[in-house]
Nucleic acid binder design. Sequence first.
DNA 1: TTGACATATGCAAGTAACGGAATATGATTG
DNA 2: CAATCATATTCCGTTACTTGCATATGTCAA
Lengths: 110, 110
Amino acid sequence: MGRPSSHADVFAAIAEPRRRSIIELLGREGEQPVGALVVALDLPQPVVSKHLAVLREVGIVAVTRRGRERVYRLSPRQLKAVHDWVSTFEKHWTHQLGRIKRRAESLGKE
Amino acid sequence: MGRPSSHADVFAAIAEPRRRSIIELLGREGEQPVGALVVALDLPQPVVSKHLAVLREVGIVAVTRRGRERVYRLSPRQLKAVHDWVSTFEKHWTHQLGRIKRRAESLGKE
DNA sequence: TTGACATATGCAAGTAACGGAATATGATTG
DNA sequence: CAATCATATTCCGTTACTTGCATATGTCAA
């Protein structure tokens, strides 16, 4: 069976490599019209528009119409949601680092 | 066309809601044998095993065999990778918060 | 060794999501 | 209004992911 209808799921949205590229680009360069994204990513315009639609529906990006262009920008709230979720497990890797460090120290004493 | 063969992609791995449930459970309760996960999540055992396989291939979980059980635990390195990626955009929501805050303050003065 | 238990794996079927090409929508210019 | 530019949307073929069921693998106990 296909996906269990992951409609408007942020995690599904950022699962696509090209969508992450779009996010990274908007993050680095700031707001961009679709045409600029098409050029920068070297993808067909409909492909970019469709990925933008997904990101828009999920709320990762927001649009403003400027003349005949549509300028996209990051809308970070949803990315923060992902950040918050992953942060839940932060203690796991900090603890693990601590363990590795302690082990290294005890090995050094031998 | 289907997915561009996102083999062993952490983002694809955490896109699945049930897999996130497994991650959350292991995060809260610590290491668990498959059977415990099956009970806790109320899913068929093969489904759980397959999701665990995906998480294992990506390196989000690790296994230890204990008798006839297999005990799974979080292996946080890959989750940290996600955390690092999302953290790249942290400034965007902190800036946005700042903007909202400033706007609230200036509205309060009127 | 035989049987029971714990988990993994194989196969088939359904479906959702992606890309490509064509087209629609909407705004600007002449 | 017609033509052009910028972007969105639709239709379609393909593919990969998930599930269900059946079965294989491996471990312990008697």
